[in-house]
């Protein structure tokens, strides 16, 4: 089960509200490469993983991603606090505001609601771990792009932390793939699907 731990993984303290910036950062909450998808991808893939290292890693990274979801939600929440109507009129935040006010809703920066089609659970560990490597890279690039759009150091310190976590996760998924291969038929690792045939 999951138990709520009443603290963030990394502090989020944003002095200056900025609704325009919130309207792009929301993509890492519920966008195509965001933290909601990341957590659900890993926490769902783990059921069909054949070895303990893989089950453990997907559980541990999936759980950390839930913590990142909370951090991104905290950024959006703090960027949109105490707003006056005049800060929203003529702002890129207006379309989001009309639908959600200053609630935190899982959607792409472009407005599309979060979609399970952005994640995959193939039920084959090589396919799923390869998907995870790509997912970490796409999330890393999204954080790169946010850093290009933001000049608020309070926001960027947190974004840089989250971006670095993607790199560490990529490394661990790559190692997991190698641990998996060592347990498979060395002549042909595609001889079977170890999630299904073992």
């Amino acid at each position: 089960m999951f138990i709520y731990d009443k603290k963030l993984q990394y502090p989020v303290k944003i002095d200056k509200p900025n609704p325009k910036l919130a309207s792009v950062i929301i993509s890492q909450y519920g966008g195509p490469d965001g933290e909601l998808g990341a957590s659900l991808r890993y926490l769902s893939q783990r059921y069909s993983m054949p070895f303990d290292e893989l089950k453990g890693l997907l559980t541990d990274i999936g759980t950390e991603e839930l913590g990142h979801l909370e951090m991104v939600g905290a950024i959006v929440h703090q960027l949109t606090r105490n707003l006056k109507d005049s800060q929203i009129q003529d702002s890129a935040f207006a379309p989001y505001f009309v639908d959600h006010t200053t609630g935190v809703y899982p959607q792409f920066a472009s407005g599309t609601p979060w979609n399970a089609a952005t994640i995959a659970v193939k039920g084959d560990p090589i396919a799923d771990l390869t998907e995870d490597l790509a997912a970490e890279q796409k999330a890393r690039v999204t954080y790169d792009n946010i850093l290009r759009l933001s000049d608020d150091p309070d926001v960027n310190n947190v974004i840089k932390f989250l971006r670095e976590r993607e790199i560490v996760h990529f490394q661990r998924f790559g190692e997991a793939l190698q641990l998996l291969r060592e347990k498979l038929n060395q002549k042909n690792v595609y001889y079977m699907n170890p999630s299904f045939d073992m």
Binding site: K7, Q9, Y10, P11, D60, E64, V168, R172, A176
Partner: peptide
């Protein structure tokens, strides 16, 4: 947060 981060980072490392 610092201690919890050390544990998390080392847990991922130890998983592999």
């Amino acid at each position: 947060q610092t201690m919890a981060f050390m544990i998390q980072e080392l847990a991922l490392y130890l998983d592999t």
